[in-house]
Write a protein that binds this DNA or RNA. Structure first.
Lengths: 180, 180
DNA sequence: GCTACCTATGCAACCAGTTGCAGTGCACCT
DNA sequence: AGGTGCACTGCAACTGGTTGCATAGGTAGC
């Protein structure tokens, strides 16, 4: 599995608390590996116990103390081990496809509405990603190394959402036509 | 959740045993909702207890007996309830993105190889889907109702794999260029 | 004759992800 | 003064998915 590894990648780039990591996930690694704060906290504790990360408690005023985590030697070792290991290719898992498949057993009208809703959702995410792209990578042609990799990951998010939106459009058009 | 519902959709189209369902999932609903046979058996038993499906034991010679399941009234009711309910839009979850993001912490060479491997895998799946498309839907323009829906679901699978392959190609080219 | 794979079912243990809740204290708005 | 929202941590229960194993006869290849 990979939440451990996603966290290690993120922590290697920059040390941080569980909360900060959860925020970071929301707008970077998270579009390839979403995670909630509870999950992150639990995995951080586990990795701390295993010696993959170390934490320093930091008192803050006006705010609860936070634990800032850094990657330890064992964590770096685990990360390179994992990076060299093959990964299972991702599979699609989308309940919307099941709904469409079963549409004629219920109301095709309602399923169509649902697809329009998903279309809007995916279009919103797409706009968010494009915004990040414009802001953080205005000139992609000059990118190298780590920044290039980050950009390419973002491109994956953009492509995935584009493809969702295009599929929804195809479905919406076909269902409307069938309905006439 | 939706494995229950995916099974109900499939069983409504045609009654079948757990094993048959697992095969069907492998080449139809499964590209939107993958499931293993163990999972399917467990859910079938649960649905049987809940009265959503009924089974008939069928003796076969030279082969183990099988239980053929059919959807019961309660199952049809549950299915329409679910079809009318909103569904959370799907999120991408792909460890390959995490690996790419962390590539510079290990061997970029190795990650590149891994991406080429995934590219090949996705291209294979894509070819499988396109084969099904050619065989089962040679003339998509005339499709209506349930068949149209099935075709559109397949189109989703095709689009998703196309998008994966295209992304891999973009990444491979960019990493090669960066390496020179 | 042995290995391996296919049909067919299923249990048990485990692992990962989700949901709901709880508590602290500041800042900001009404 | 009261409500909302944010920063920050965390537990507990649950649900769903994965993996490994067991059983059993038939077919196919070496």
């Amino acid at each position: 599995m990979a939440l451990e590894h996603a966290i290690l990648v993120s922590l290697t780039e920059r040390a941080g608390s569980g909360y900060e990591l959860a925020r970071r996930f929301d707008r970077s690694i998270g579009y390839f590996w979403p995670a909630t704060h509870q999950q992150i906290y639990r995995v951080l504790r586990r990795m701390d116990e295993a010696g993959w990360v170390k934490h320093t408690e930091i008192a803050q005023d006006g705010r609860p103390d936070k634990k800032v985590y850094r990657v330890a030697a064992a964590g770096r070792a685990e990360l390179s081990r994992w990076l060299a290991e093959p990964e299972d290719p991702a599979v699609l898992r989308d309940g919307l496809g099941v709904k469409l498949r079963g549409a004629s057993l219920g109301s095709v009208e309602l399923v169509l509405k649902e697809i329009e809703r998903h279309r809007a959702e995916h279009a919103t995410r797409l706009e968010v990603y494009r915004g990040i792209q414009r802001r953080d990578f205005p000139k992609p042609s000059g990118l190298r190394g780590r920044e290039l990799h980050q950009y390419l990951v973002l491109r994956g998010g953009v492509r995935a959402e584009e493809s969702f939106v295009a599929w929804c459009d195809e479905v919406i058009e076909a269902l409307r036509k069938d309905n006439r």
